Simulated scan of single mutants.
Amino acid sequence: MQHAPVIAQFIVEEFLPDVPPAELDVDLDLIDNGVIDSLGLLKVIAWLEERFGIAADQVELAPEHFRSIRAIDAFLARAGTEPAEAK
């Protein structure tokens, strides 16, 4: 899981400020557990576009791709992305 630490850091900063990134389970269902709702999903997609250069109009944006840190990491791997410079 190449991008898991960066993804966990973003999730914690944006949605779970009281949880240390290291304690966030990579398999936690972020949608079913109410961490990310529909607006949060848009925020995650916008962040992926900015941070990893994902072109939202060129990839399949299905909810199952964003259910967990592991799923987001796998989505990035399939998209063949490299992180942009840290912002």
Rank of each mutant, 00 (worst) to 15 (best):
M1V: 12
M1Y: 11
M1T: 13
H3V: 10
P5Y: 00
V6F: 10
V6T: 15
A8P: 08
A8L: 11
Q9W: 04
Q9V: 04
F10Y: 11
F10N: 06
V12G: 09
E13Y: 09
E13S: 09
E14K: 02
E14N: 02
F15G: 00
F15V: 00
F15Q: 00
F15R: 00
L16Y: 09
L16A: 10
L16E: 07
L16R: 09
D18R: 15
D18F: 11
D18Q: 15
V19Q: 10
P20I: 08
P20N: 14
P21Q: 12
A22E: 15
A22L: 10
E23H: 11
L24K: 04
D25Y: 00
D25T: 02
D25E: 03
V26M: 06
D27M: 07
L28M: 05
L28K: 09
L28V: 05
D29A: 01
D29E: 00
N33Y: 13
V35Y: 00
V35E: 01
I36D: 01
D37P: 00
D37S: 00
S38L: 10
L39T: 01
L39Q: 03
G40Y: 03
L41R: 01
L42F: 07
K43Q: 14
K43I: 11
V44G: 00
V44I: 09
I45G: 06
A46L: 11
A46P: 03
A46H: 08
L48I: 03
L48C: 05
E49F: 08
E49M: 08
E50Q: 14
E50R: 14
R51E: 13
R51L: 10
F52K: 07
F52C: 07
G53N: 05
G53V: 03
A55H: 09
A55D: 14
A55T: 09
A56G: 12
A56I: 07
D57L: 05
Q58E: 15
Q58R: 15
V59S: 11
V59I: 12
E60H: 05
E60C: 04
E60L: 11
A62D: 10
A62N: 11
A62F: 03
P63H: 05
E64K: 14
H65S: 12
H65L: 06
H65R: 13
F66T: 00
F66G: 01
F66H: 02
R67S: 12
R67W: 06
S68I: 07
I69W: 03
R70M: 02
A71D: 04
A71L: 02
D73E: 03
D73K: 04
D73T: 03
A74V: 13
A74K: 08
A74I: 11
F75A: 02
F75R: 02
L76A: 02
L76K: 01
A77E: 13
A77I: 07
R78C: 08
R78Y: 13
R78V: 06
A79G: 10
G80V: 05
G80L: 07
P83R: 08
A84V: 13
E85V: 14
E85L: 12
E85H: 15
A86H: 09
A86K: 12
A86M: 06
A86I: 08
K87H: 11
K87L: 12
K87M: 12
